[in-house]
């Protein structure tokens, strides 16, 4: 919000630029969310295809929100923030994927087939 409240005044170019970003971000988020809802509820695609499309839409929305609301983009000033975001993703992926891997591997050794902890 500091972008809007800066002393530059309400009709400076910077203000308009920032405002445009927020509006774009909001509009795109709404569109992508609605698209997800429609695909999930529409029944046009098969289950696995629907899962993948919704997943991709979610990632797209994540990127848009980082760009529009958190001002993380490819510019030089945003570079440290971008690195931090990327690092965060790296760690989350390591932890989540690692956990799934370890547990699925253990499950397979318990004779439950890959990935299946059900029936325990």
């Amino acid at each position: 919000m500091s972008h809007i409240n800066s002393d530059k005044g309400m009709d400076s170019g910077e203000y308009k630029h920032a405002m445009a970003r927020y509006v774009w971000g909001f509009a795109l988020s709404v569109v992508l969310t609605l698209a997800g809802v429609v695909i999930a509820g529409g029944g046009v695609f098969g289950a696995s295809l629907a899962w993948s499309i919704v997943g991709i839409l979610a990632i797209a929305q994540l990127i848009i929100q980082f760009w529009a609301f958190m001002h993380v983009d490819l510019s030089q000033e945003a570079r440290p923030d971008l690195y931090l975001v990327m690092f965060t993703f790296l760690i989350i992926i390591l932890m989540a994927a690692g956990t799934v891997w370890v547990l699925a591997d253990l499950a397979s050794r318990m004779g439950m087939g890959p990935g299946g902890m059900t029936g325990m």
Partner: peptide, 18 residues
């Protein structure tokens, strides 16, 4: 440091390649 945690429980029953 985020890629080595399994070495604390090598004996828990994972497969050898993991």
């Amino acid at each position: 440091s985020f890629t080595v945690w399994v070495h604390h429980f090598f004996t828990m029953g994972q497969t050898a390649h993991l």
